[in-house]
Simulated assay, not measured.
Amino acid sequence: MNQASHCFAFEHDFIGSWRCIPLCVRRKLDLIGLKLKLNHWLALSQEQRQQLVDWPDEHQQLNALRDHLRDCTSSMADGMAKNLPPACSEPWQQPNRIPAELIDAAQKQGVELDANAWSKLDELERFALCKLARPGHDHHNLPAAFSEVLG
């Protein structure tokens, strides 16, 4: 799987229309430390959104993505996309340790998630599960995510 541009089946309701920011783009935003609001995303053209989905995730290309998004958003009504600390040692970046909140979420869903299964997931899959299981998030896609990623 090309995790830079992979969209999950559970995201199918907005793939192509790109009315929401897909997880592959959200991962890139976390990696570059940039907060792109949904309003920013929706102000971009369909072609621009597709370009962000397809954007490679190698280090040099991610640096270019940060600059590109700052340029694209600088004149938008919501102002330039805000800087955040780039993701570093986030739970989804650690294949050897399952986050406690994800273990709890899996148990509540009746899903078996062990260290072996977690370590076999790629970074985007771990990212998706962590984002969908975090406290305060609408968990309606979590069962489908567990099924797709672990199935």
Rank of each mutant, 00 (worst) to 15 (best):
Q48A: 15
L44E: 03
H6D: 01
Q94L: 12
S89L: 07
K120A: 12
W92L: 02
A81L: 09
Q61V: 14
L121N: 00
D67I: 13
P56Y: 02
R49C: 08
A115I: 10
P95K: 07
L52W: 02
P99N: 01
L102T: 02
C7L: 12
R70A: 05
S75A: 15
R66F: 15
A77L: 14
I103R: 07
D67M: 14
K28D: 03
L113G: 05
L23S: 04
K108S: 14
D122N: 08
A4D: 06
P56A: 05
K28I: 06
D30S: 10
A43G: 09
Q94V: 13
F127N: 00
D13G: 09
L29M: 08
L113C: 06
L65R: 02
H137Y: 11
L65I: 05
Q60E: 15
E125F: 00
E11W: 04
L29F: 09
A128R: 01
P91D: 01
S74E: 07
V53N: 03
C24E: 00
P95F: 08
W18I: 06
L29S: 05
K28S: 08
L31A: 14
T73M: 10
R70I: 06
L69S: 01
V111H: 02
E58Y: 11
M1A: 08
A106T: 03
L102Q: 03
Q109M: 11
F127P: 00
L113F: 06
K108M: 14
Q60Y: 13
L124N: 01
G136R: 04
L129D: 00
P95D: 07
A43Y: 07
P56M: 04
L132V: 09
A43H: 07
R126H: 01
C130D: 00
Q60L: 13
P135K: 11
L113S: 04
D30H: 09
W18H: 07
V25D: 00
L38I: 10
E125N: 01
H40F: 06
P56T: 02
S75E: 12
D30A: 11
S5H: 14
C88L: 11
L62E: 01
E101S: 14
P86I: 12
C7V: 12
D67L: 12
G33Y: 01
E47V: 14
P86D: 08
W118T: 07
A9E: 03
A106K: 02
M76Y: 11
N63I: 10
S5C: 15
S119T: 04
N2H: 10
L102V: 06
D122Y: 03
W118N: 07
C20G: 09
R19M: 14
D57I: 04
Q93T: 00
N116W: 15
G136Q: 03
S17Y: 13
R126L: 00
L23V: 03
L52F: 04
E112I: 11
D122G: 04
K108I: 14
Q48L: 15
C24G: 04
L65K: 02
E47N: 13
Q48Y: 13
E58L: 11
I98L: 03
S74N: 06
R97W: 10
K131A: 11
P85F: 14
H59I: 15
F14N: 05
K35F: 14
D78H: 07
